[in-house]
């Protein structure tokens, strides 16, 4: 029997993956910069880039193997919590890709990451509020 593939990881984070910006421009995932996300959100219409600050990082008690990330999002400083695998990369403003486990991110995706820490401000998107 064929070997069972490892649990699927989003291949868009694989080093070399081609990403299409909202401007139509194509870039490799490892070459993306903060401005690429900002500009893409601007031309997308309906989407807004928000600054999401990491305020707490814990290992999940309910779901072993995952980490629980607490963010404050946007000007409202709304609290948002998400569970992710430790290798999941986030894009930090002015710094680039970062994860709770840069070693695992490098193993699984080949993507070079910084260590995600409390106080880091990540790129996230929300729906644009109508004026």
């Amino acid at each position: 029997p064929a070997p069972t593939p490892a649990p699927s990881n989003p291949s868009h984070f694989m080093k070399g993956a081609i990403i299409q910006l909202a401007t139509g421009e194509l870039k490799r995932v490892e070459d993306l910069q903060t401005q690429d996300f900002v500009r893409s959100a601007e031309v997308s219409g309906g989407l807004k880039i928000d600054s999401s600050m990491v305020v707490d990082i814990r290992t999940s008690q309910q779901r072993p193997g995952l980490v629980v990330l607490h963010f404050t999002v946007g000007e409202q400083q709304s609290k948002v919590t998400i569970d992710v695998p430790p290798e999941h990369p986030f894009f930090v403003f002015g710094q680039g890709w970062s994860s709770c486990s840069p070693e695992r991110t490098a193993q699984l995706y080949g993507l070079a990451c910084h260590h995600l820490q409390v106080g880091d401000v990540c790129v996230s998107i929300t729906l644009q509020q109508p004026p």
Binding site: H12, I18, I125
Partner: peptide, 25 residues
């Protein structure tokens, strides 16, 4: 002529989390 191999292209927004703040206050 060699057909170019099709390479998957992913949209930029698939890379960033969609964090929708909930107004709980």
């Amino acid at each position: 002529n060699v057909e170019p191999r099709s390479v998957p292209v992913f949209p930029w927004h698939s890379l960033v989390p969609f964090l929708a703040p909930t107004q709980s206050d």
